[in-house]
Amino acid sequence: MSRIKTNLTNFKKYRFLLYELVKKNIKLKYRRSYLGILWTLIEPLLTMIVLSVVFGVFFNKGDKQWPVYILTGRLLYSFFSSGTKTALRSVSGSASMIKKVYVPKYMYVISNIISNFIIFLISLIILVIVAAVLDVQPTIYLLGAIVPLIILFFITSGVGMILATLNVFFRDIDYIWQVVSMLISYTCAIFYPTERLLKSGYAFVLDFNPVYMCIANFRNTVLYGKPLDMQYVLVSSIIGVVVLLVGIVLFYKKQDKFILYL
């Protein structure tokens, strides 16, 4: 109990640092590019166009709202993917600071997740625009969209903690994760209709993929005007909580050893 309390006062002391680190991540990401933060909007828009054209031809999609389907999947997946990727490198990449100044080390991980989440939230503007142009009607269920986003935030934080810890001890994790996250992207139904997979007999991969569940629920509320799929909410939030707990425990158990391996 007292440990939680000291952690809390410590967090309060370094609140300003968290803010500064988040600001740094966002600022440096777009520094020295002419369009700057506008890239958070342009980049998903461009990939959406490419993917819609390519896979629209593939799957023979005449559906007018097909680009929204792709954009929703892409936005959520890229938050997960860039969030975990930067978190993975956050501790090993801050070696020079960790060795010299005492700072609660989870700050490095959390600041990366938060800055990616903020970039993601900004990029939702492009979703609003595209949805309006393609005539997607908002419904009352839109309010539910917050639920999969929160769950995805937890999942990403948990996975980020685990990867950041492992990467200190084994630098291979970086490369392994590149392959794994590619695999996850293919099983998220970002650029193909879910029915294709259901028909193929490999539908089970979707039932094991919490990131897909968040994407599906986000589409339900945003694109289809449907309520949340409660089974997906339940399963993905359980996975999210478990992953986060594992991440926190692992990180706390190993953090004193980080400095010896950096």
Partner: peptide, 22 residues
Amino acid sequence: AGFTPEYTGRENIYLYGAMLGY
């Protein structure tokens, strides 16, 4: 040691200060 090379001196004052817990 806590300086960020891409950051200006001004920005680093705040970041480094925050690292020291100010």
